[in-house]
């Protein structure tokens, strides 16, 4: 048990580091909150290695810690809403066992952006942001392929590794 906790801690540290690296990359799309979602690599890894509960714990701890270190109150709600929606959908898709890591990651990327639009409607009090949705869905799907490929590689490489 303590060993599992330490591996989860390692995951959390890696996720935070990836979030930080991502803040250094200039935004590709003219809409804030749209990122490749590098930290999602760790979340997907945790989803496969541990399960839904542990992956959620890592994801939410990362959001809270990253908000405290280099985020702000507004970005917190965007991250939280996107992460929650994407985690739930990814866990459900994984459970069907009909999709590989990449398919699950695509759905996660898309739902992350959908979640951000939903919270943007709420925060800005305007449905106008919906016009960004198509572009964001495409972008989420594309980044989902990339993140999923990396995650699948990581899961496969570390499958036989005993951390303890």
């Amino acid at each position: 048990m303590p060993k599992k906790v330490s591996l989860m801690g390692l995951c959390l540290a890696a996720a935070m580091l990836l979030s930080y690296v991502e803040t250094l990359i200039p935004p590709l799309v003219a809409f804030p909150g749209i990122k490749a979602g590098l930290a999602n690599i760790v979340v997907i890894f945790a989803l496969w290695r541990f399960g839904f509960k542990e992956a959620s714990l890592i994801s939410f701890s990362r959001i809270i810690l990253c908000t405290l270190i280099f985020g702000n109150f507004v970005s917190f709600w965007y991250s939280l809403c996107g992460a929650t929606l994407s985690l739930i959908v990814m866990a459900l898709l994984k459970k069907t066992e009909k999709f590989s890591v990449i398919g699950v990651s695509i759905a996660g990327g898309v739902m992350h952006n959908v979640g951000q639009i939903l919270i943007a409607i709420f925060i800005l009090g305007s449905r106008a942001v919906l016009s960004f949705l198509p572009a964001l869905i495409i972008f989420g799907a594309v980044s989902g392929v990339a993140i999923g490929t990396l995650s699948a590689l990581l899961i496969k490489k570390l499958e036989k590794t005993k951390f303890y």
Binding site: F99, I102, G103, P134, I138
Partner: peptide, 24 residues
Amino acid sequence: VAMNKKRNDLILLLSIVLVTALVL
């Protein structure tokens, strides 16, 4: 099983892209 999953992934990706493109 792995091949079926890959096919499903592709169907998922293509349907997302197609539906979004159509709406656009």
